[in-house]
Design a protein around this nucleic acid. Structure first.
Lengths: 367, 367
DNA sequence: TTGTAAGCGTTATCAG
DNA sequence: CTGATAACGCTTACAA
């Protein structure tokens, strides 16, 4: 370690070295934390009373409750969640299962779920289940079994058999960002979203409208994919436009997917004047690819995406925002109500919204 | 829908009712899962033997172990983690605490941590602690107390007092992506990374080198920020270049930060020919901003960032990759060893690496 | 090798 | 309002 100073250059670092605060007072012996019996003893009451006092359940005298509270505080007593769970038969935890964590949609969803669940005093256990193999293992071993009060599946693609086996988890389940037979879910209308996006292109005067999507590396089929393609086709049909197969291009995922897609699209007979991207990431990639080919967006090529990915803001891309935060909130809400046995656990469809950033313009006048 | 049988099929669900001796219905009765006593009874052994058999501890006859296994399987028995934890005095869980989940660095870190910890059979509890207020609350209430065997703090900025109070968690802690007095940590050499980046610019022949950073909305100070600025200055000094204050610009975080930064930089007397971005996101924003001003990267302006953010690939930006996945792995490893009381818990410095994408080129010949 | 029984720390049910 | 006491489901000496 060569360098020492951060930036104060001259001054000798104030070095917060000494364990400043003396003994953390009273106790706080991490090795064996106080338990309810300790509190009860010191407070001179029974353990049952401590339990009641600390949980704010009725049936304890005010003065008693107060005294217990003080003693607990003084012993820096913390309830043992394990013991409490064991006795109460619930964990205070929810599992969130998702294919990836390090991808915008999922990290945003997880962030929203965590926030909403934490507000309810529920802890979040994450399971990242990526690809068919891990999915199979997860469904086979059900590692979350008996560890949580509910499970939130975030856009996890499942076969019917897998879906069924999940019932063995024995707790309520919710789908966030998708659907599955018989489970309450929160999603957006992918088809309508795609249709609305393409309608924008149509309305701007485009006739040759391409759609670009990427294929997954594994054989997984995503509902959203199918639905958005369907929406694309519907919009074309509704406008009396032909769905030219060569304008629906699928590239394998990768950084140059956009460039490749643009190349393919420019090579066709009557190249498109507008592109609908399956996602904002793809729209952005197409936009970059277009630029590399000397095309400017939106002057030479209109582009619109789906998602509401922050990246699209940077690129100035118009998009159909699918409001992931809201989806997360709703899903968390359903999970909580299911846990509490409250009603109101119906599925929710979150509304998308168009975000106009000017990347859709009328096509260049044809010559 | 011919899924039906797990084993018994056919029989109408016996509903969750009879508490005890009733045959555990041979199948998964989610309401009342089998416990060890059930397994013991069916297998004709004691509950202790079941415990030993299922955990692979020595001291059980092979045939007995086998029989117990079968019975457990048949009853689709799953051990109660709560009970097990309570008895064993450990939870099998680790808490990961981070300011945000929906930001590249953190989601990547979390993804890596989850993967590594899952491989060790450890569950991950996430806490998103955003901003000074939540940080204060987290440190005050310590919601993770008694819920985990270790805590991993992912680049969580803490005051010395807060740092000290965390000791009350009573479990080992690790810092991932940063440092804090007295705690084992995993990080990169931010200063060296910045220096190396700027050295690339110097080596390409640039003399007027700017640095762009963004300020946080709250007053939080990030070590990485200070260190990277220091590295920037060091590199300039080492090259005998003046550190012109007007070339170190700080913009408030936002999508147009890049544009604003470029504007400011173009307005100075002798505008820079190269920009070092505090992060890849900023470098990308600057790159977009430059383009809006009619400057091309790298022809008119060289740009280099820090992070290894996938976005930089899309933008064709050179960067110093800080290898977050590796940092996660190392941090998880330290946590695991700390939990097991194994040695080898020293801090780790992960090496960064330069990723050349051609966004650094010699400056235009001056006229 | 196997069983018995004492915890682990709470909650919940009954009495008082 | 308060206190015993029996679960909750498992682990672990200690015996057999």
């Amino acid at each position: 370690m060569e360098h020492e100073d951060q930036e104060g250059a001259g001054e000798a670092a104030p070095a917060a070295s000494t364990p400043t605060t003396g003994a953390p007072a009273s106790s706080a012996n991490p090795a064996n934390p106080a338990n309810m019996a300790d509190v009860a003893r010191v407070a001179g009451v029974s353990i049952a009373t401590v339990s009641r006092a600390l949980r704010d359940v009725p049936g304890v005298g005010d003065s008693t409750r107060e005294r217990v509270r003080e003693v607990a505080e003084q012993l820096s007593y913390v309830i043992s969640p394990e013991a409490s769970s064991l006795s109460r038969r619930e964990t205070g935890r929810v599992a969130v299962v998702m294919p990836r964590i390090d991808v915008w949609f999922y990290s945003t969803m997880l962030s929203g779920l965590e926030r909403a669940l934490r507000a309810e005093g529920i802890d979040v256990l994450v399971y990242q289940v990526d690809g068919p193999a891990e999915r199979g293992a997860f469904v086979r071993d059900l590692p979350a079994r008996r560890k949580v009060d509910a499970v939130i599946l975030a856009a996890l693609p499942l076969s019917p058999e897998q879906r069924d086996r999940l019932d063995l988890l024995g707790v309520p389940m919710v789908i966030a960002g998708g659907q599955a037979r018989g489970l309450p879910h929160v999603d957006v209308d992918d088809r309508a979203m795609a249709r609305a996006a393409v309608e924008r292109l149509v309305a701007a005067g485009h006739r040759d409208i391409a759609m670009v999507r990427t294929s997954d590396t594994d054989a997984t089929t995503w509902d959203a994919d199918l639905l958005r393609v369907a929406g694309y086709r519907e919009a074309l049909a509704a406008a009396g436009l032909e769905a030219r197969p060569e304008l629906l291009v699928t590239e394998t995922y990768g950084v140059d997917a956009g460039t490749r897609a643009v190349e393919r699209l420019l090579a066709v007979d009557r190249p498109p004047t507008a592109v609908f991207g399956y996602s904002d990431e793809i729209a952005a990639a197409v936009s970059v690819g277009a630029r590399r080919h000397g095309l400017s967006v939106p002057d030479d090529l209109s582009v619109i995406g789906v998602d509401g990915h922050p990246m699209s803001e940077l690129f100035g891309l118009s998009t159909m925002d699918q409001n992931v935060e809201r989806q997360a909130e709703e899903a968390a809400g359903i999970a909580v109500r299911l846990i509490r046995g409250e009603p109101g656990t119906r599925s929710v469809r979150v509304r998308h919204r168009f975000v106009d950033r000017g990347s859709v313009q009328p096509p260049r006048p044809q010559d």
